[in-house]
Each structure stands twice: as structure tokens, then as C-alpha cells.
Design a binder for these strands. Structure first.
Length: 283
DNA sequence: AAACAGTTCAACCGCGTCTGG
DNA sequence: GCCAGACGCGGTTGAACTGTT
């Protein structure tokens, strides 16, 4: 009695939830080697997973820059609008919502938005209401700065290649959710890695307290004085106030340099010039 | 307190597309 | 042009969590 391909894989590869240790292995590997061939990642990283599973874990959970927590009203509006236009093209929708994954958006749609859209007979009116909610600068001061743009659809603006300021401002701000363990240190030569001397909770820290300590010690308001981070600190500050970040916060500051370069500052120092894409991080 | 129902979300699966040999 | 392997995407599943009775 033969096995289906998937059953063969099942025999060989571990399935189910990822343990913190597996996450750590994958993160360490990607940090040191970047993204190459996913099929070789589990082998090289010492994981008993298939490459597909590693890729998914990285993209949906471990990848730097991911936003976590609730979707904002602006994001909801974007999803509703984009879904109206694009349909179930979750990856396309996700491209317009930096820091959100297609999987996350898809889940959110099925959990919340589909019902809401279905419940309302006047879905169109709802969409219109949400349409470019992101442009409501009066409310949060972080979105569109030209009223002429407000009447245009998100897609029109995105397609036009214009920089949508509101869109820009909902960039994830690279809140590196439990991404850099304490074993990564920032020095004059940039990011360096030390083999962990002890296993903490698998992520290199204990969640709640250290997050609070870190945020406190980070001098958040001081960061706000830098030009590019004015809005950022406000945004994240708002988010923090609303309790939307319920994850260990290790890394707060970013500014986009060009398209993909992030300027990483860690309070007592900074480094820049590592390249990050949806699938990987490269120095 | 226990049982059940409903919800959420991480992960899996299968299929289509891309790419290199 | 064909084929195999890798990748990307959308649909689906099921474990964990939460709320209700």
C-alpha cells in the first residue's frame, strides 16, 4: 500500500505548531545566511520541517517588520476597499498593508470583515464610508495632506505611483517582534551575534516585563525629535497606549532609507545598511 | 465547575506558475 | 519544448482560546 506524497512527507517532517526552539533556529539561520533555497533551509538549520513550512513560518511570523495586534480602522478600510477591487487576492492586498501578511489579512477577513460586509445590505455604502478612511488627516494627523487626494480611491493613488503619505505612515515602523534576541548586540561594527549562553524562553527574553523595561529605557520621546520619526513615535505611542502591542518589543526605531534599507537604532548606537525584503534579510 | 458552542489564527494542503537544466 | 524542483498563493483545517449556558 503506497503512500501519497504528502504522507511520505509526514513521515519525514515534523508538523504542527512551532516550538520556540525551532523559531530560534530558523531565525538564527536566516540572520546568518539570509534567504537562499528554502528547501535547503531545514537541513542547514537543523530543523525537521520542510522548506515550505520554514518559508511560511518566516513570512507569517518571524520576518522582521511584521505588525502584530489589532487592525486599525485605516487598515480595515484599506482591506475593504482593496477586496472590493481585487477580490480574494490576499497577497496583492497584503502588498498595500506593510507589516501585514496575506494569511493575517485573510484570517481577519474571514473572522470579521466578511461578516460585516455580509451583514450590511449596503456594502457599497460601507465601502464608500471606509474608502480612504486613511486619508482622514483631521483625525490622526498622519494621513493625507492634500485634500484633493482624498476623493481618489486607494488603488488609483497606488497605481499612479504617487506616494500616499497615509500609506507611508502605516508602515510597520519595524517593530521587530521578538526578533532580535539579546544575543544580538549592536556595536561599532554593526550587528554581531553571540551564541546564547543560556536558554531563556526561547526568544531571548521574558515577555511582558522586559518589554516594559525596554520601552521605558529606550527614551521613546527622545526618538521623536528626529525628523523622520516624529510621526512614528506618535503612531507607536498611540498604539502602545491602546495596548495594541502585546508582544515583546525589542526594536523600535526605523526609518525607510530608499526602498528596503532600514536604519536600525538601539538607543546607545545604531547601524544601518542591512537589506530587508519580504523574504529575507541581507547585509 | 463542567460542558458545549463559537471564534481565532497558525499551519497545512493542493494547485498554478516560474525557472533552470 | 519538456521536465523537475522551487516558489507563491488561496482555501481549508484543527488546536487553542473565549464566551455562554
Amino acid at each position: 500500500m503506497g503512500l501519497k506524497p504528502s504522507e511520505k512527507l509526514t513521515k519525514k517532517h515534523k508538523k504542527g505548531l512551532w516550538s520556540p526552539e525551532e523559531d530560534q533556529r530558523l531565525k538564527d539561520y536566516i540572520l546568518q545566511h539570509g534567504i537562499g533555497c528554502w528547501s535547503s533551509v531545514p537541513l542547514n538549520a537543523g530543523l525537521q520541517r520542510n522548506g515550505k513550512s520554514c518559508r511560511l513560518r518566516w513570512i507569517n511570523y518571524l520576518r522582521p517588520g511584521l505588525k502584530r495586534g489589532m487592525f486599525s480602522t485605516q487598515e480595515e478600510g484599506m482591506i475593504l476597499t482593496l477586496h472590493q477591487t481585487l477580490g480574494n487576492k490576499w497577497s496583492q492586498i497584503a502588498k498595500h498593508l506593510p507589516g501585514r501578511t496575506d494569511n493575517e489579512i485573510k484570517n481577519y477577513w474571514h473572522s470579521y470583515l466578511k461578516k460585516r460586509a455580509g451583514d450590511s445590505a449596503d456594502t457599497e455604502a460601507n465601502i464608500a464610508k471606509h474608502k480612504f478612511a486613511i486619508s482622514n488627516t483631521e483625525e490622526n494627523g498622519s494621513c493625507m495632506n492634500q485634500s484633493s487626494k482624498a476623493s481618489r480611491s486607494v488603488l488609483e493613488l497606488l497605481d499612479s505611483g504617487e506616494q500616499v503619505q497615509g500609506h507611508e505612515n502605516i508602515l510597520p515602523r519595524l517593530v521587530f517582534a521578538d526578533w532580535l534576541p539579546n544575543d544580538y548586540t549592536v556595536g561599532q561594527n554593526g550587528l554581531s551575534y553571540q551564541q546564547p549562553t543560556s536558554v531563556k524562553n526561547g526568544f531571548g527574553f521574558t515577555a511582558a516585563k522586559q518589554q516594559g523595561d525596554f520601552i521605558h529605557g529606550f527614551g521613546f520621546n527622545e526618538v521623536a525629535s528626529t525628523s523622520s520619526s516624529d510621526m512614528y513615535s506618535q503612531d507607536v505611542g498611540d498604539v502602545m497606549q491602546k495596548g495594541m502591542l502585546d508582544f515583546p518589543l525589542k526594536f523600535q526605531e526605523q526609518s525607510a532609507l530608499g526602498s528596503n534599507f532600514m536604519d536600525y537604532s538601539a538607543g546607545d548606537g545604531s547601524f544601518s545598511g542591512f537589506y530587508m525584503s519580504n523574504s529575507g534579510i541581507f547585509s
